[in-house]
Design a protein around this nucleic acid. Structure first.
Lengths: 256, 256
DNA sequence: AATAATAGTTCCACTATACGGAAACTTCGC
DNA sequence: GCGAAGTTTCCGTATAGTGGAACTATTATT
């Protein structure tokens, strides 16, 4: 058998790769980009970009403004929601196991710009329900999942994200400065999990852990009232969280 | 010269169109599809589909399960969120004008499968806040924006959507049967706007109107407590809603 | 207001690129 | 374990996409 020496493409369809590159560049440019910007960013010839964008505009995945600027189109919303639902479905079984084992609500969230987006949740049986809902966004600095995700990034990236999003104090326990946050992230990195201790909402505590090797930075958590979610709970929860995170990671990366 | 039988549209990049067709088919199949299903749905040859999907898998927009089944990948979440944010940014100025004119919270939502997805919101100054948040999904049959969107569709499409989603009664005022819903939609079509009168939440009333010529079915609304949002409010609100909907429509199809 | 400069779009010949028939391979049902 | 259905690789072919050059629209400059 000959070894596959093909470099980047490896049998990939060139125009499709390029079309998605363009979408990613537009998304990275704050959702709006000019043709020439795209040319310098991708290194492609202008007519090539123009033709690809024309196709995307015709299919509704890109809109063109009167400025001639290009922005991400509404067609992507549908696909994104579908993908989000899909990711949630994958995680749900594992989250349900956590709920069964621990009796508290389990969540999964992904990094979405400078926020976390809740992609899946399995509520506990307890009548004290969480307000978090799938599709909702929250701050990175005051949530367990947010801090677990940030702990995977470099300090520079963390500073950039939290300055973009701001660090409002949801409660008196919230971390409100980048330096204090980075210190907590160091602790999170060393012990392998994050704690949100009344930081997002008084009376709620949360243990969170990142999902390794996820295509998009992802984390899971279990949360509940401080009366039930205490130190002893954490001792039980952390190994189970780790197992769930690894199971989700495994499912995400299942190879053919 | 062979006759050009393909009506793919002028100047579109074939492989890109096909790649997105595949994504749409996967999304329509509940987010999970087999290669052969995609072949019958699109009419493409198996190796062609396989090559396109391989590209999408390599770039993270599609995942392949151990089943060999293909599902929408997490890469689409980022793009979808970007597109959603973009749409929201466009609408926000117009919604802010509505809030300034009427003093109540203004929303914009798009059709997302069998639900509405809130894409933008400008809250009112009143301390009585709405629970709706950007990114949240709601039912079609019991929200003003949902009914405004449904009123644009055919009766058959409406029945299909509400049977897919179900019609749970959020309040005692909620519409719970397709026939009653279609009757209300007839009223909405004739007068040009929708009213949610305590249907989603007791004490909340809402005036909503569809955004014409939107690439994805879209509607805007103003909502608030019944004490303030009464008949007199509606008289003032409807022309302003219409102006805002037309302004958004104009922006969507032309300028920034 | 006129002109220059820059950005965007159309055209077209070339060939690299993606296509799909056929065959090898893998998984699933029995 | 065998047959069938589904999936992936291979490879010759021609179609479909590419990008240089020319042209048009838009914005900046004088």
């Amino acid at each position: 058998m000959t070894e596959n020496v093909t470099t980047t493409g490896a049998g990939g369809v060139q125009s499709v790769e390029r079309a998605f590159d363009l979408l990613e560049v537009i998304a990275a440019s704050g959702g709006e980009a000019m043709l020439s910007e795209l040319a310098t960013a991708t290194g492609l010839a202008l007519p090539t970009i123009h033709r690809l964008l024309r196709t995307l505009v015709a299919t509704g995945y890109v809109r063109q403004l009167a400025n001639r600027r290009y922005v991400l189109g509404p067609g992507l919303i549908r696909l994104g929601e579908g993908a989000s639902r899909q990711l949630g479905a994958l995680a749900r079984t594992h989250l349900a196991t956590l709920v069964q084992q621990l009796g508290e609500t389990a969540n999964m969230a992904v990094l979405d710009g400078d926020r976390v987006l809740y992609a899946a949740q399995v509520p506990s049986r307890h009548s004290m329900r969480m307000f978090t809902e799938v599709g909702r966004r929250a701050h990175l600095h005051d949530t367990g999942v947010g801090k677990a995700i940030l702990a995977q990034l470099t300090d520079a990236a963390v500073r950039s994200l939290v300055t973009a999003a701001g660090m409002p104090a949801a409660t008196t326990m919230s971390i409100t400065t980048p330096d204090a946050l980075l210190q907590d992230l160091g602790l999170i990195r060393s012990r392998g999990y994050a704690i949100d201790d009344n930081e997002q909402e008084i009376g709620v505590r949360c243990f969170a852990m990142s999902v390794p090797n996820a295509p998009t930075p992802t984390a899971i958590s279990v949360s509940g009232p401080v009366s039930r979610v205490d130190e002893a709970f954490g001792t039980r929860a952390v190994p189970l969280l780790r197992a769930a995170a690894e199971a989700i990671s495994h499912d995400l990366n299942r190879a053919p």
